[in-house]
Amino acid sequence: MEPEKDIRITLIGAGTIGLSFAVFHLSHLPAPSHLAVYDTRANADQYIRDSLPKFFSKDSTSLSRSDVRIATSLHDAVSNADIIQESGPENLQIKQDLWAEVEKHASKDALLWSSTSGIPASQQAQKMQDKTRLLVVHPYNPPHIMPLLELVPSPSTSEAVIQRTQNFWRARNRVPIHIHQETTGFVANRLAFALLREAIHLVDVGVVSVAELDKIVETSMGPRWAVAGPFKSYHAGGGPAGLEGFFNNIGETVQGCWNDAGKVNVGDGWEDKVFAQAREVYGTVDVAERDRITRRLLDVLEEEKGEKTQSDGPSKS
Rank of each mutant, 00 (worst) to 15 (best):
D82V: 06
R279T: 01
E150Q: 07
D59Y: 00
A261T: 02
A160P: 07
N173H: 09
I12W: 02
L29W: 00
N189D: 12
F21H: 06
R295E: 08
G269S: 08
Y47F: 06
F186G: 07
D260T: 05
F193V: 06
H144I: 02
G242F: 02
A100N: 11
D67N: 13
E244H: 10
E280P: 13
G283Q: 01
R292V: 08
T284A: 14
R197P: 01
W113Q: 11
F168G: 07
Q93L: 07
P53V: 04
V287S: 11
M128T: 05
W113M: 15
V210W: 07
P176A: 15
V102W: 03
N167D: 12
F231A: 06
P30H: 06
Q93H: 14
Q181R: 15
S220W: 00
Q96C: 13
V207Q: 07
A188S: 09
A71W: 00
L297R: 03
D312L: 15
L111G: 10
G118D: 04
A106G: 05
E103D: 04
T116Y: 09
P230H: 01
N141Y: 00
A228T: 00
H105S: 14
S87Y: 06
V281W: 04
Q123G: 05
R224C: 01
H235K: 15
R170F: 10
L149K: 09
E280A: 15
P89N: 03
G245W: 08
I216E: 01
K305N: 14
W113N: 09
A36T: 04
E302P: 01
N91V: 10
G206V: 11
T219Q: 14
G262M: 03
S154M: 04
H180G: 05
H105R: 02
D268P: 06
W113H: 13
N189R: 02
L26K: 03
G222Q: 03
I9K: 01
T284K: 15
I200P: 02
E304T: 13
